[in-house]
């Protein structure tokens, strides 16, 4: 029961990965790609880690740390990348 649930979560996570990464190919803007990447990549990675946590619960501390790192740092990273790349575009427009 737990085993099928954890495999299911891992597979859902991989589907999220593909869903978020496939828009990287193509000529869309950086912000559009960043949006799909940060939302579904983070969700997919967290689903995979939760699946691993269900599989082996006795080393939970490390996996919980991984989930927290993913949730916090990926969000901050999304903001930082958006700020850096968009202020760059504004300067080019000014010139």
């Amino acid at each position: 029961m737990i085993d099928t649930l954890s495999y299911g979560l891992i597979i859902v996570g991989i589907i999220f990965w593909f869903w978020g990464t496939l828009p990287l190919i193509g000529n869309r803007s950086v912000l559009f790609k960043l949006h799909s990447l940060s939302v579904s990549d983070t969700l997919g990675s967290m689903a995979i880690v939760v699946g691993l946590l269900l599989k082996i619960p006795n080393e939970w501390s490390l996996l919980v740390l991984a989930i927290m790192t993913l949730a916090i740092w990926n969000t901050v990273l999304g903001y930082v990348l958006a700020y850096c790349s968009s202020s760059n575009e504004k300067i080019i427009n000014k010139k």
Binding site: L24, V30, K33, D41, S45, I48, L63, L81, N88
Partner: peptide, 22 residues
């Protein structure tokens, strides 16, 4: 474009470490 490369790097950095966890 360098920002597209940075996005790809962000994706690769997360993916490699999750693969290491698995």
């Amino acid at each position: 474009d360098i920002w597209q490369k940075m996005l790809a790097f962000a994706s690769i950095a997360t993916k490699t470490s999750i693969m290491m966890l698995v």
